[in-house]
Write a protein that binds this DNA or RNA. Structure first.
Lengths: 201, 201
DNA sequence: GTCTATATTCCGATAGAC
DNA sequence: GTCTATCGGAATATAGAC
């Protein structure tokens, strides 16, 4: 793997690949070393421990998509516009890094409290503004009465699950990666419509 | 744990609990032994190896819900009726065994080919009949033109994902297990409507 | 069948030469 | 900084007494 990169970056690149694919417990330091084309001892020289190396990758991943998502939720757009942008941003992000959802769900399950602490860093998830917008639209009568958490579930389900189910989907349908991407590009456009229909009065 | 059950069943019960919760790699034989209230050596006496014990639980889990699902897909109901029954059956099943989706997704990711081989046992997933029904409804003009896989994705996303996201959901919203169950009972009734709306012409 | 004790394997981590 | 060799602990697996 990329013999021209400096060692530290080669390690990060390899660790990203292995950890994202197999999670913390499923990954071996030997695997990461082999992938990076260097010796196992080097991993410890640069990152002290497996945990520390993992934390580095984890933060990198979270910081890579969370700000974008939070930004959308806190913007000044209408509720419907936000649903649109959220789906687009989320699916585009996932198409770039298709293993991230697995990684996230795995970590979430392994240790939910530690996970949220690391992800939110003491802050609260920025759901307040959207919640208010939902209540307002309900009052206006433009959408049905429902709990905000239901919309959250609908949106996340439709955006995230396909990436979790991708291995199964590809094996069952014989679809290759390119076809999967095409399918998700199509859904990126269609999902907001489905979601909005589901809440319209 | 249940001192009155025969040893083999105590082991199975404990293994079910631990494996479903932590997956293959996250589970320890010691954990299972402790949970069963017996000695570690007994696990090997009855099941030879960790892998073998895991396979047993895995098959048990898969056989516990797949026939029901396949039965619904192959029944003589209309497409819309099937969507209804599928959502109900799936969510009811998951409410009984809320860790199964994690387990399934984890295994699917760990080794997709082995997973499908074990699950389908050489057979094909029974999607042919539903596919034909979709094509028929499209021809009739009662639903939009779309690929069957899209409907599959929509249904599975909405039914499965909430259970994968439950730990996060509970931590973020402060919801307890009972509240989560109430939420899913509600969605069990609403989801078919959302799904059918999404495909209606 | 069940236990204790021990062997074996695997893996993260470190020591030390270069 | 990079490597080889090795340690030490943890986890799976087995031997052997009862």
């Amino acid at each position: 793997m990329k013999r021209d990169l400096p060692t530290e970056e080669r390690i990060l690149k390899a660790a990203r690949k292995v950890f994202l694919d197999k999670g913390l417990e499923g990954s071996r330091m030997q695997d990461i070393a082999d992938t990076a084309g260097i010796n196992k001892a080097m991993l410890h020289y640069y990152f002290r421990s497996k945990e520390k190396l993992f934390e580095t990758i984890f933060s990198e991943v979270v910081d890579g998509f969370l700000p974008r998502i939070f930004g959308i939720l806190n913007a000044d757009d209408s509720l419907f516009e936000k649903i649109n942008k959220f789906c687009s941003a989320y699916i585009e992000q996932e198409l770039e890094t298709p293993y991230v959802p697995f990684f996230i769900v795995g970590e979430m399950n392994r240790d939910p409290k530690a996970f949220l602490k690391k992800v939110l860093k003491g802050k609260k998830p920025p759901l307040r503004k959207v919640t208010l917008q939902i209540q307002e639209e309900i009052k206006k009568g433009s959408i049905k009465k429902f709990q905000p958490v239901e919309l959250l579930l609908t949106v996340l389900s439709l955006c995230v699950f396909p990436f979790l189910a991708r291995p199964m989907l590809q094996t069952v349908t014989g679809m290759n990666m390119k076809q999967f991407i095409t399918l998700m590009e199509k859904r990126k456009i269609e999902l907001p419509g489905i979601i909005i229909k589901s809440i319209k009065a």
